[in-house]
Simulated scan of single mutants.
Amino acid sequence: MSEPIRWYVDDPLEKFWFTALCYSSHHESDTQTKLTHHPIVCQQLDKQRLAHSPELLSKVFSLLIDAHYQTSPDDIQRLLDAPESICFIMFQNNRVLGVAQVNQEGGLKLSGLAPAITQGQRRVKGHLVAQNIANLYNDEAFCTMRQWRIGRIAIHPHLQQMGLGSELIAFIKQQAIKHQTDLLTTAFGCNSALLKFWQLADFELIKLSNKVEVSSGEHSCICVYSLHQDAQHTVNNLTKEFTNELQFQIDKAWKTMPSTLLADILRYIDEHNSVSQTDIVKQYCEGFRNLDSSQRVIRNHIFANAKELNKLTDSEQGILVACILQKQVICSSI
Results as ranks from 00 to 15, higher is better:
55 E>D: 15
311 K>G: 03
129 V>H: 09
318 G>E: 15
115 P>N: 02
250 I>D: 04
300 N>L: 09
239 T>N: 01
137 Y>C: 01
298 I>A: 09
196 K>C: 00
168 L>Y: 01
4 P>D: 05
141 A>Y: 04
21 L>V: 00
318 G>Y: 04
152 R>K: 11
298 I>D: 08
316 E>Q: 13
50 L>S: 13
175 Q>P: 01
85 S>N: 11
275 V>D: 05
181 T>V: 15
206 I>V: 15
285 C>Y: 06
333 S>F: 06
325 L>F: 06
252 K>Y: 05
53 S>H: 13
44 Q>V: 06
218 E>G: 03
300 N>S: 15
104 Q>R: 15
207 K>Q: 13
74 D>E: 10
179 H>S: 12
120 G>L: 06
43 Q>K: 14
250 I>Q: 11
325 L>M: 10
307 K>W: 00
62 S>P: 01
241 E>T: 05
156 H>F: 03
157 P>A: 02
84 E>N: 07
136 L>A: 11
61 F>N: 08
125 K>Q: 11
179 H>R: 11
183 L>D: 08
253 A>Y: 08
219 H>S: 02
119 Q>D: 11
47 K>F: 00
204 E>P: 00
250 I>G: 04
276 S>Y: 06
58 S>D: 07
69 Y>W: 07
262 L>T: 08
277 Q>F: 07
41 V>R: 15
199 Q>Y: 02
328 Q>L: 09
272 H>I: 01
168 L>C: 03
255 K>V: 03
320 L>P: 04
149 R>M: 11
164 L>A: 10
24 S>Q: 13
209 S>A: 15
142 F>M: 02
139 D>R: 12
3 E>W: 05
19 T>P: 01
308 E>K: 15
132 N>R: 13
330 I>S: 15
19 T>G: 12
27 H>W: 06
177 I>K: 15
186 T>H: 05
318 G>L: 01
81 D>Q: 15
219 H>P: 00
51 A>E: 06
37 H>Y: 03
324 I>G: 12
16 F>P: 00
145 M>K: 14
3 E>H: 14
304 A>S: 12
21 L>K: 08
88 F>P: 03
74 D>L: 12
68 H>Q: 04
121 Q>G: 09
306 A>N: 10
197 F>T: 00
42 C>E: 06
13 L>G: 03
126 G>N: 04
176 A>M: 09
96 V>H: 05
59 K>D: 11
181 T>W: 04
61 F>H: 14
169 I>L: 14
16 F>T: 09
90 M>H: 09
211 K>M: 10
14 E>W: 02
221 C>W: 01
205 L>A: 10
90 M>S: 13
25 S>N: 12
288 F>A: 14
204 E>F: 03
193 A>R: 00
46 D>N: 13
225 Y>I: 04
239 T>W: 01
254 W>C: 01
262 L>Y: 02
184 L>M: 04
330 I>G: 09
60 V>W: 07
57 L>Y: 07
236 N>A: 10
33 T>E: 12
226 S>G: 14
223 C>Y: 04
333 S>P: 04
68 H>F: 07
146 R>C: 10
84 E>I: 09
28 E>F: 03
18 F>C: 12
120 G>E: 05
283 Q>I: 01
251 D>H: 14
114 A>E: 02
273 N>I: 05
221 C>S: 13
175 Q>G: 01
244 N>L: 14
88 F>R: 03
23 Y>G: 14
4 P>F: 00
5 I>H: 10
293 S>L: 11
254 W>F: 06
95 R>I: 08
45 L>H: 02
196 K>V: 00
5 I>M: 07
269 I>A: 03
